[in-house]
């Protein structure tokens, strides 16, 4: 059961990554990237690495997304 959830999470991860690469809307891509990081952090929690999970949640999902948002606000939301 738990294994199935983990596999699902992994699958979600791959889907997220592909979507991030494909989306034309940079803002959505950033949000999805945040979700990706969040899922990643959950997976790490599942792997009993809470330190990494917290750090990823704070830095990967939080700070990185914020930085992306800041940059997008300066450069425009859509890919040409």
């Amino acid at each position: 059961m738990l294994a199935a959830i983990n596999v699902l999470l992994l699958l979600f991860l791959v889907v997220c990554a592909v979507v991030v690469a494909r989306t034309k809307d940079l803002l959505s891509a950033t949000v999805i990237f945040g979700a990706y990081s969040m899922v990643m952090s959950i997976i790490w929690q599942q792997l009993h690495s809470p330190d990494v999970a917290i750090t990823e949640a704070a830095i990967g999902a939080g700070a990185t997304s914020l930085l992306f948002l800041a940059a997008i606000s300066r450069t425009g939301r859509h890919e040409e």
Binding site: L13, A17, V20, A21, L26, A29, T30, F33, Y36, S37, M40, I43, W44, L47, S49, V52, E56, G60, T64, F68, A71, I72, T75, E79, E80
Partner: peptide
């Protein structure tokens, strides 16, 4: 082609390595 996407790709690559490590 999009530079921001390149950076996102970089992040995906890095996190994949972290997943690998963990």
């Amino acid at each position: 082609n999009n530079l921001l996407k390149k950076i996102m790709g970089m992040n995906i690559m890095d996190t994949s390595l972290f997943l690998f490590f963990v």
